[in-house]
Amino acid sequence: MKSILLSTVAVAMTATLALADGHSVVRMGTEGAYPPYNFINDAGDVDGFERELGDELCVRAELTCEWVKNDWDSIIPNLVSSNYDTIMAGMSITDERDEVIDFTQDYFPPTASAYVGASDGADWENGVVAAQTATIQAGHIAEGSATLVEFATPEETVAAVRNGEADAVFADADYLAPLVEASGGDLVFIGPDVPLGGGVGMGLRESDTELKEKFDAAITSMKEDGTLNTLLVKWFGEGTAQY
């Protein structure tokens, strides 16, 4: 225990010396409701792929990091007004978001979004499709011919299909996969996969270029030595896309 404490202090001290711009503690914003990317575990802590990845990135970038939860709705406004310094919340890199904030390179390769319904025959094309508010998936449905119904959390979008509120839910395939698996046939993948967005990256303020470079370098090093792939397989299974 003592050695862990000491090493944290050591990291903290180097971080303070290394950073002149006030980032002695980097605050990492996440949603905590999007397993396996991020979720709250039984003990009440932030857990998941992004937690593990983020902690490792901070070690490599020699930063002290701290996790903060924030609602998805206001996750970008709160970054912009400096309530935390980064967003790691399964956020796809899109042009729309890129105008407002900056992204590091992707740490999760561009993947498919998928439809899940209660049965094979569910109408994902013209029926009622649930998606989380202010996501690329919601934007995609709004442009198509299906009826969009929006919920504040990803959990609620899936619940909407379970209780018949919506014909299908449209979300990241990786988020849906464990739920379909655990549902015992109540939920099934339907329709084609749709590639959306430019992968998942870490969001930062546009003015925070120094921090962005540090994390970019750390992600590159994790991609090169294969540790990022190990993490991907650990959280998303063998079948997931890798670098």
């Binding site: 709705d73 206001s74 970008i76 406004p77 009622v128 649930a130 202010a134 709004a142 009826t147 969009l148 119904v149 929006e150 919920f151 609620e156 909407a160 509120e165």
Partner: peptide, 19 residues
């Protein structure tokens, strides 16, 4: 209560724009 097809009340749109 969810908003269908982005049909909501005044506050729904106000917070849409604020977002």
């Amino acid at each position: 209560f969810p908003a269908w097809q982005q049909r909501g009340d005044a506050l729904y749109y106000a917070s849409y724009f604020a977002d």
